[in-house]
Protein backbone atom coordinates (compact mmCIF):
# COMPACT_ATOMS: atom_id res chain seq x y z
CA UNK A 1 0.00 0.00 0.00
CA UNK A 2 2.80 2.36 0.94
CA UNK A 3 4.60 1.61 -2.29
CA UNK A 4 1.42 2.33 -4.24
CA UNK A 5 1.01 5.69 -2.52
CA UNK A 6 4.60 6.55 -3.30
CA UNK A 7 4.12 5.75 -6.98
CA UNK A 8 0.98 7.89 -6.99
CA UNK A 9 2.92 10.82 -5.53
CA UNK A 10 5.66 10.37 -8.13
CA UNK A 11 2.99 10.17 -10.82
CA UNK A 12 1.76 13.53 -9.58
CA UNK A 13 5.26 15.01 -9.75
CA UNK A 14 5.81 13.73 -13.28
CA UNK A 15 2.50 15.12 -14.49
CA UNK A 16 3.35 18.45 -12.84
CA UNK A 17 6.63 18.51 -14.74
CA UNK A 18 4.87 17.86 -18.06
CA UNK A 19 2.18 20.46 -17.42
CA UNK A 20 4.70 23.16 -16.53
CA UNK A 21 6.92 22.20 -19.46
CA UNK A 22 3.91 22.66 -21.72
CA UNK A 23 3.52 26.22 -20.42
CA UNK A 24 7.09 27.06 -21.43
CA UNK A 25 6.55 25.58 -24.89
CA UNK A 26 8.16 22.16 -24.42
CA UNK A 27 5.37 20.00 -25.76
CA UNK A 28 7.32 16.80 -25.27
CA UNK A 29 10.27 15.68 -23.20
CA UNK A 30 12.89 12.97 -23.42
CA UNK A 31 12.42 10.38 -20.70
CA UNK A 32 15.86 11.19 -19.38
CA UNK A 33 14.91 14.86 -18.96
CA UNK A 34 12.16 13.84 -16.53
CA UNK A 35 14.72 12.22 -14.21
CA UNK A 36 17.03 15.20 -14.51
CA UNK A 37 14.37 17.86 -13.86
CA UNK A 38 13.09 16.04 -10.76
CA UNK A 39 16.66 15.52 -9.58
CA UNK A 40 17.60 19.20 -9.98
CA UNK A 41 14.39 20.26 -8.25
CA UNK A 42 14.98 17.93 -5.33
CA UNK A 43 18.63 18.79 -4.80
CA UNK A 44 17.95 22.55 -4.83
CA UNK A 45 14.78 22.55 -2.72
CA UNK A 46 16.39 23.17 0.67
CA UNK A 47 18.10 26.30 -0.55
CA UNK A 48 14.80 27.99 -1.16
CA UNK A 49 13.09 26.54 1.90
CA UNK A 50 15.85 25.86 4.46
CA UNK A 51 13.50 25.49 7.41
CA UNK A 52 11.05 23.15 5.68
CA UNK A 53 11.32 19.43 5.36
CA UNK A 54 12.35 18.48 1.82
CA UNK A 55 9.15 16.93 0.36
CA UNK A 56 11.21 15.01 -2.21
CA UNK A 57 13.23 13.12 0.41
CA UNK A 58 10.64 10.51 1.23
CA UNK A 59 10.04 9.48 -2.38
CA UNK A 60 13.32 9.74 -4.23
CA UNK A 61 16.49 7.67 -3.85
CA UNK A 62 18.61 8.87 -6.74
CA UNK A 63 21.78 7.00 -7.57
CA UNK A 64 24.40 7.80 -10.21
CA UNK A 65 24.08 5.99 -13.51
CA UNK A 66 25.67 6.27 -16.93
CA UNK A 67 22.77 8.46 -18.04
CA UNK A 68 22.64 10.69 -14.98
CA UNK A 69 20.67 10.53 -11.73
CA UNK A 70 18.42 7.50 -11.75
CA UNK A 71 15.74 6.01 -9.54
CA UNK A 72 13.73 2.91 -10.33
CA UNK A 73 10.56 4.51 -8.95
CA UNK A 74 10.40 7.15 -11.69
CA UNK A 75 10.77 4.35 -14.22
CA UNK A 76 7.82 2.50 -12.65
CA UNK A 77 5.74 5.68 -12.56
CA UNK A 78 6.48 6.49 -16.19
CA UNK A 79 5.39 3.01 -17.25
CA UNK A 80 2.26 3.37 -15.16
CA UNK A 81 1.42 6.75 -16.71
CA UNK A 82 2.04 5.44 -20.22
CA UNK A 83 -0.12 2.35 -19.72
CA UNK A 84 -2.96 4.50 -18.39
CA UNK A 85 -2.53 7.04 -21.20
CA UNK A 86 -1.72 9.98 -18.97
CA UNK A 87 1.42 10.14 -21.09
CA UNK A 88 2.00 9.08 -24.69
CA UNK A 89 5.23 8.11 -26.35
CA UNK A 90 6.27 9.36 -29.76
CA UNK A 91 9.66 7.97 -30.71
CA UNK A 92 11.90 8.88 -27.83
CA UNK A 93 9.70 11.79 -26.74
CA UNK A 94 7.00 11.71 -24.10
CA UNK A 95 4.07 14.09 -23.88
CA UNK A 96 0.81 14.47 -22.02
CA UNK A 97 -1.82 11.96 -23.10
CA UNK A 98 -5.59 12.18 -23.41
CA UNK A 99 -6.23 11.11 -19.79
CA UNK A 100 -6.22 13.89 -17.24
CA UNK A 101 -6.80 13.69 -13.55
CA UNK A 102 -7.84 16.34 -11.08
CA UNK A 103 -7.23 13.95 -8.23
CA UNK A 104 -3.52 14.61 -8.27
CA UNK A 105 -4.20 18.04 -6.75
CA UNK A 106 -5.21 16.22 -3.58
CA UNK A 107 -1.93 14.32 -3.28
CA UNK A 108 0.10 15.25 -0.20
CA UNK A 109 2.44 18.21 -0.73
CA UNK A 110 1.41 18.31 -4.39
CA UNK A 111 0.93 22.08 -4.55
CA UNK A 112 4.13 22.78 -2.66
CA UNK A 113 6.12 20.65 -5.11
CA UNK A 114 4.23 22.00 -8.13
CA UNK A 115 5.19 25.57 -7.21
CA UNK A 116 8.78 24.56 -6.79
CA UNK A 117 8.89 22.69 -10.12
CA UNK A 118 7.50 25.84 -11.66
CA UNK A 119 10.39 27.94 -10.33
CA UNK A 120 13.01 25.44 -11.51
CA UNK A 121 11.51 24.70 -14.93
CA UNK A 122 10.99 28.38 -15.71
CA UNK A 123 14.69 28.92 -15.08
CA UNK A 124 15.73 25.84 -17.07
CA UNK A 125 13.52 26.99 -19.95
CA UNK A 126 15.73 30.04 -20.35
CA UNK A 127 18.46 27.69 -21.52
CA UNK A 128 16.46 24.94 -23.28
CA UNK A 129 15.84 21.26 -22.63
CA UNK A 130 19.07 20.26 -24.34
CA UNK A 131 21.09 22.19 -21.75
CA UNK A 132 19.67 20.33 -18.75
CA UNK A 133 22.32 17.67 -19.31
CA UNK A 134 25.09 20.26 -18.97
CA UNK A 135 23.78 21.38 -15.65
CA UNK A 136 23.22 17.93 -14.17
CA UNK A 137 26.53 16.52 -15.31
CA UNK A 138 28.30 19.42 -13.58
CA UNK A 139 26.14 19.39 -10.49
CA UNK A 140 28.56 19.26 -7.54
CA UNK A 141 26.55 16.73 -5.53
CA UNK A 142 26.14 14.44 -8.54
CA UNK A 143 29.81 14.82 -9.47
CA UNK A 144 30.95 13.92 -5.97
CA UNK A 145 28.96 10.70 -6.09
CA UNK A 146 30.26 9.94 -9.54
CA UNK A 147 33.92 10.63 -8.74
CA UNK A 148 33.86 8.54 -5.59
CA UNK A 149 32.01 5.82 -7.48
CA UNK A 150 29.46 5.88 -4.70
CA UNK A 151 26.73 3.30 -4.73
CA UNK A 152 24.87 5.17 -2.03
CA UNK A 153 21.91 7.33 -2.91
CA UNK A 154 22.66 10.95 -3.76
CA UNK A 155 22.15 13.35 -0.89
CA UNK A 156 19.29 15.70 -1.73
CA UNK A 157 18.90 16.96 1.83
CA UNK A 158 19.92 20.36 3.13
CA UNK A 159 23.71 20.45 3.33
CA UNK A 160 24.31 18.60 0.05
CA UNK A 161 27.15 19.98 -2.05
CA UNK A 162 24.92 21.84 -4.49
CA UNK A 163 23.12 23.49 -1.57
CA UNK A 164 26.46 24.50 -0.04
CA UNK A 165 27.58 26.06 -3.30
CA UNK A 166 24.41 28.10 -3.53
CA UNK A 167 24.86 29.30 0.04
CA UNK A 168 28.42 30.35 -0.82
CA UNK A 169 27.17 32.23 -3.88
CA UNK A 170 24.62 34.03 -1.73
CA UNK A 171 27.26 34.91 0.87
CA UNK A 172 29.49 36.31 -1.86
CA UNK A 173 26.70 38.63 -3.02
CA UNK A 174 25.97 39.64 0.55
CA UNK A 175 29.64 40.40 1.15
CA UNK A 176 29.88 42.45 -2.04
CA UNK A 177 26.58 44.31 -1.80
CA UNK A 178 26.21 44.71 1.95
CA UNK A 179 22.73 45.59 3.08
CA UNK A 180 21.55 46.12 -0.48
CA UNK A 181 21.71 42.34 -0.89
CA UNK A 182 18.46 42.19 1.08
CA UNK A 183 16.76 43.33 -2.10
CA UNK A 184 17.64 40.02 -3.76
CA UNK A 185 15.49 37.03 -2.98
CA UNK A 186 16.45 33.35 -3.04
CA UNK A 187 14.87 32.84 -6.44
CA UNK A 188 17.15 35.52 -7.81
CA UNK A 189 20.19 33.71 -6.35
CA UNK A 190 19.05 30.53 -8.05
CA UNK A 191 18.91 32.41 -11.35
CA UNK A 192 22.42 33.79 -10.76
CA UNK A 193 23.64 30.30 -9.93
CA UNK A 194 22.28 28.84 -13.16
CA UNK A 195 23.56 31.88 -15.03
CA UNK A 196 27.00 31.43 -13.52
CA UNK A 197 27.15 27.73 -14.32
CA UNK A 198 25.90 28.17 -17.88
CA UNK A 199 28.13 31.13 -18.66
CA UNK A 200 31.07 29.05 -17.45
CA UNK A 201 29.93 26.12 -19.55
CA UNK A 202 29.62 28.33 -22.62
CA UNK A 203 33.16 29.56 -22.10
CA UNK A 204 34.30 25.95 -21.66
CA UNK A 205 35.62 26.62 -18.18
CA UNK A 206 33.73 24.10 -16.12
CA UNK A 207 34.72 20.79 -17.59
CA UNK A 208 36.68 19.39 -14.70
CA UNK A 209 36.04 21.86 -11.98
CA UNK A 210 33.76 21.03 -9.08
Amino acid sequence: MKKREKILRINGDILSVFRICNEVGWESLKEISVYRIIYISSVLYSFKYPSKENPFSEDYDFVTSLRGPFTEDIKISLTNLLVNEYLVENGKQLSLGKETSNKIDDLPKYKEKYNWFEVVIYILAIYGEEKIYDFVVRDPEYQENLQTNSIKEINIEKGNKTYSNLVKLKETFERALGESANELDDKKYLEYYFDYIFSKILRGELDHEL
Partner: peptide, 14 residues
Amino acid sequence: MNFNDPDIVNKIIE
Protein backbone atom coordinates in the same frame (compact mmCIF):
# COMPACT_ATOMS: atom_id res chain seq x y z
CA MET B 1 33.45 26.81 -8.01
CA ASN B 2 35.32 29.34 -6.00
CA PHE B 3 32.91 32.06 -5.01
CA ASN B 4 35.56 33.61 -2.78
CA ASP B 5 37.51 34.57 -5.87
CA PRO B 6 38.16 38.34 -5.48
CA ASP B 7 37.42 38.75 -9.21
CA ILE B 8 33.84 37.57 -8.68
CA VAL B 9 33.36 39.85 -5.67
CA ASN B 10 34.79 42.81 -7.61
CA LYS B 11 32.58 42.07 -10.58
CA ILE B 12 29.49 42.07 -8.35
CA ILE B 13 30.58 45.36 -6.75
CA GLU B 14 31.24 46.92 -10.18
